[in-house]
């Protein structure tokens, strides 16, 4: 009898829709900061609390800002890549130690290696908010004029570094004319 098949048919249609629904990614978010000047901050460095670093100090350079924390699990994933990249001395990486304790952060760098030219301490996360930090780790590429050219949410991968970050570095890291 056909009517007993009806529930099965209805359910089949439902599954098809849910399957298509699954392919839609609600997390695809562009950053409104790309193309805008990097928000200013003035924070003390991790290594030396008396030294203060601001983005203005890096004018004329292309640099990476990497948001990390000792409590961040995914940061460990990208960390070896950062350490390796730092060895090439292509561009400096500045760390933004986000909502972290200084001692924990220093111990973490001792253990996993320190790829950062300097790390600044954003203990209350205020600077993170300015940068629209969404989930640690995040990485920003900032050009010689202090404009954000790229932002990545989540761990940096070798592919992303090669295919997305490096071309941008080549494009923006030109000798000042």
């Amino acid at each position: 009898m056909k009517r007993f098949v009806i529930p099965l048919v209805v359910f089949g249609a439902l599954v098809v829709f849910l399957a298509i629904g699954l392919t839609r990614d609600p997390r695809e978010v562009p950053s409104p900061l790309v193309g805008k000047p990097a928000p200013a901050f003035s924070l003390s460095t991790l290594a030396d609390p008396t030294r203060v670093l601001t983005p203005a100090d890096l004018r004329g350079k292309v640099w990476l800002l990497n948001v990390w924390a000792s409590w961040c699990v995914a940061c460990r994933q990208e960390h070896p890549l950062l350490v390796e990249f730092a060895r090439t001395h292509r561009v400096p990486i500045i760390g933004l130690d986000y909502k972290d304790k200084r001692d924990d952060a220093l111990a973490w760098l001792m253990r996993f290696g320190n790829p950062y030219a300097a790390s600044v301490v954003d203990a209350d996360g205020r600077t993170g908010i300015e940068y629209g930090v969404y989930g640690v780790p995040e990485t920003f590429l900032i050009d010689q004029e202090g404009i954000i050219r790229y932002k990545r949410i989540g761990p940096l991968t070798a592919e992303a570094l090669r295919d997305e970050v490096m071309p941008l570095i080549r494009r923006y890291d030109v000798p000042a004319s």
């Binding site: 997390r27 409590w71 932002k151 989540g154």
Partner: peptide, 15 residues
């Protein structure tokens, strides 16, 4: 003006 559409981390990537 925006060059990139970014993908957010998987569940374990966010804090």
């Amino acid at each position: 003006s925006l060059s990139k559409t970014l993908r957010a981390p998987a569940a374990n990537g966010s804090p």
